[in-house]
Amino acid sequence: MSAARRLRAGLKGWGGVGAMGVACALTAVFTLLPLREAPLVQGSAATGGQGPTRVTYANADDCEDADAWKQSLKPSSDESGRTIAAIKEKGYLTVGVDQNSYRWGYRDPNSESDSADLEGFDIDLAHRIADEIVGGDVKDNIRFKAVPTNQRIPAIQSGQVDMVVRTMTISCTRLKDVAFSAPYFTTGQQVLAPRSSPIDGYDSLARNKICTATGSTALETLREDQEKGDLPASADISTTVPNQLDCLVRLQLGEVTAVVTDGALAASQAAQDPTVELKGSPFTTEYYGVAMRKDAEDLVRRVNQVLEDYRDSGWQQSYDKWLAPTLGDDAAKSRPPTPDYR
């Protein structure tokens, strides 16, 4: 991670969520749990037809993380491409999501609905994309698959999902394996620890045991910082888990003393458990994007067109509903940057 990215610069509890987090984390670690059954699509050309498609992205090897969010394609409303045609033919969009991240993608156990449908900021966006691309009945135009953090890229590459909308940071490393939309959210890595802990931010993690999710940018950052000497060698970063929520469970059980993850997710976890809190300021700047197959150029362009409209109509309403209670009413710091397409 480029040094240029560094920005060194009374949440209310949700009844029953701590217990729910433990249960969800333990049941979702090794399985994909579909909200509605979606067929498993085999092979790398599952939604893209036969053979490879020319892709016009800048070379990911020439990418710098500070500019990774600029690697997407210009928007288009054209739906004649074969990836979109295949989605329309099957009649629904298959989206990899989280079902354990409070206010992002989760099932509310207190929901009045008997089905406890998935809901949250990412779920709103996924529905908007499905409505724009597939249309029709909102109950039939989308299938969700719960994908662990460490399985997001494999789920895309294997064709199990058409895209992943799951608090997924755009990075140069990931651009080698998947394509991203333009950003839809701005966040940064932050520390989560017990309120009683003397930890006061990233610079105080020496001699602490830290939990991160496998395949996360948090783990990548910690490893790179230790190699450079920016993070003391005494900081134990060996505890990794398949799902980010599992880190909160480890923290609750006293198996680790701190968690490093995106501040937006950490704020939601602090809302789940009032005994923990965010410590210090974010120490990176990161952007969430919708991840898709590298050869799905038509789908990437179409999603970017949806995002162009969504940023003006839908984004703020979804933020106010789901994230304002944990991130605050001022959404300015969370809004994505103005797209700069290559």
Rank of each mutant, 00 (worst) to 15 (best):
P183H: 09
K90N: 13
Y184Q: 06
P75L: 00
Q157P: 01
S2Q: 06
W322T: 10
A267S: 08
V241F: 00
E286H: 09
F121E: 07
L231S: 03
D298A: 04
S204I: 00
F30R: 09
S44N: 09
D122H: 05
M1L: 12
E308P: 01
P52S: 06
Q317E: 15
L35V: 14
P39A: 14
A116Q: 15
P109S: 06
D298Q: 04
P337S: 09
N100P: 06
G81Y: 00
L73A: 05
V276C: 01
A45C: 11
L93E: 01
P109Y: 13
A23R: 15
V97M: 07
Q50F: 10
G159V: 09
G229W: 00
E224M: 09
E277D: 11
G43R: 10
Y288M: 10
A4S: 12
K90S: 13
Q71Y: 12
L265Q: 03
W322I: 07
N141G: 02
Q151S: 05
L26K: 15
D295P: 01
D137A: 10
T284E: 05
L253P: 00
V259S: 04
N304A: 02
R107C: 06
V134W: 13
G21W: 14
D177L: 13
P339M: 07
C172N: 10
S111K: 12
T27I: 05
A332E: 15
I142Y: 13
T47F: 14
K176L: 12
N304K: 02
L253W: 14
E308W: 05
Y202F: 10
A206F: 02
F144Q: 05
V164I: 08
L7M: 12
D340C: 02
T239F: 05
D330M: 12
K139Y: 13
T31P: 06
S77I: 03
K279W: 07
D114L: 15
A66H: 12
D225F: 00
I123G: 08
Q305T: 13
G229I: 01
A58V: 09
D114A: 15
Q99Y: 10
A271V: 06
G10M: 08
N243A: 08
W104K: 11
H127W: 10
Q272C: 03
A19K: 14
K145L: 13
T338P: 03
A267C: 06
D246P: 08
L265D: 04
G188E: 02
D61L: 12
R36L: 09
Q317V: 09
